[in-house]
Write a protein that binds this DNA or RNA. Structure first.
Lengths: 113, 113
DNA sequence: ATCAAGGTGAGCCATATGGCTAAGTAATTG
DNA sequence: CAATTACTTAGCCATATGGCTCACCTTGAT
């Protein structure tokens, strides 16, 4: 799914993760954010575009300043996917466990014969 | 952190996510996996290299076949980061809530004066 | 009306990504 | 030993990424 691609791609860059971490503490302007990351504005805007296209950040212009904020469900797509895969994975491990237990049990009873 | 970069980058590609999803159901050989994804072996190996460099998948060679499996803590780095950011985010929302409630309460008492 | 500040758009550059084919190498099979 | 199978390596190609500067446009302050 293209949306998940974008979400994880957004998260794959340290600068963007830092932006998300910072926006979690409240909105900020593009200029503010760029300054904190020692980066030229146009470079930084590319990151913001990536974050907006992945629907993790929203922005609107107030006067000549653009304010950015984290969107409410910014992280849920990623978390949902991870949680689901992890459930599958753990379910299988449990199966393996019981398989091994079953084997062990059988071994035991065989040994006792 | 470079490791998180790699983890999220791994997850940013649909093919790689599919591989993870499939490996959650048990180990498989490179050839098997490549066939399922209608992809030439060398192209596919690049994906596997990405997954191995992010420590999400391990592989070893058995005869001429390379078997791959999900590593136990494949998803925890990603999940941990997401969970932490989300906690910060929700903590702030709660602060906002109580701030708004406090405001509302004050308004009330002012109105009653 | 002018000038400064904040953002935007265009475009350059080096490197990375994601696909391929072609030509190996090593292990099985006949 | 010969042929096949399963990877592996090298390298091509188009496109994407992540940084930059320079020029421009709005908006705000004098």
């Amino acid at each position: 799914m293209a949306h998940l691609d974008r979400v994880f791609h957004s998260l794959s860059d340290g600068t963007r993760r830092a932006v998300i971490a910072q926006l979690a503490n409240g909105p900020a302007s593009i200029g503010d954010l760029a300054r904190r990351h020692h980066m030229a504005l146009p470079s930084f805007m590319k990151h913001m575009r990536v974050l907006e296209e992945s629907k993790m950040v929203a922005s609107r212009k107030v006067g000549r300043v653009r304010m950015c904020q984290l969107r409410p469900k910014a992280l849920t797509a990623a978390q949902t996917w991870l949680a689901r895969e992890r459930r599958v994975w753990e379910a299988r491990l449990n199966q393996l466990d019981s398989f091994v237990e079953a084997l062990a049990a059988e071994e035991h009873s065989n040994g006792r014969k």
